[in-house]
Simulated scan of single mutants.
Amino acid sequence: MGKRDNRVAYINPIAAARARGPVQNSGPTIQDYLSRPRPTWEELKEQLEKKKKGSRALADFEDKMNEVCLHYALII
């Protein structure tokens, strides 16, 4: 009786990946990212000014809270 052949085939993972071919990209490319539309300098300044002013809803809320606090202060 002869010995059993217990050798295992080794597959080089790099060679296997190359044999499959190039990887298909599913998302946007770097070129897509670099060529995206960007705001102009004037639009950017307007956005910054809007951020500095804050939101109107927050200002209304703060005014209402000040009225409520003042009302409670007069009651006490």
Rank of each mutant, 00 (worst) to 15 (best):
A57H: 08
E62D: 11
P22D: 06
R7W: 02
K52T: 04
A17I: 04
W41E: 10
K64Y: 15
S35A: 14
Q31E: 15
V68L: 15
I76A: 15
W41P: 07
W41N: 10
A73S: 11
L58V: 07
Q24T: 13
R4T: 07
R18A: 05
I14E: 08
I75E: 11
G54Q: 02
L74C: 03
E42Y: 03
D63F: 06
K53P: 00
A16G: 01
Y33W: 14
C69F: 10
N12K: 02
Q24R: 15
P39W: 01
S55A: 09
Q24W: 09
T29S: 15
K50D: 08
R4M: 09
P37G: 07
E62W: 04
M65L: 14
I11Y: 13
L58Q: 11
G27H: 12
S26Q: 14
E62F: 01
K51S: 10
I76K: 11
S55N: 06
A19L: 04
Q47C: 02
L44I: 09
L58S: 11
P22T: 05
Y33N: 09
T40Q: 03
R36Y: 07
S35P: 01
W41D: 11
G54S: 06
A16E: 09
L70G: 08
K51T: 06
P28Y: 08
R20T: 03
V23F: 08
N12H: 13
L34C: 03
P28E: 08
T29Q: 09
Y72R: 05
K52D: 06
G2S: 12
K64T: 15
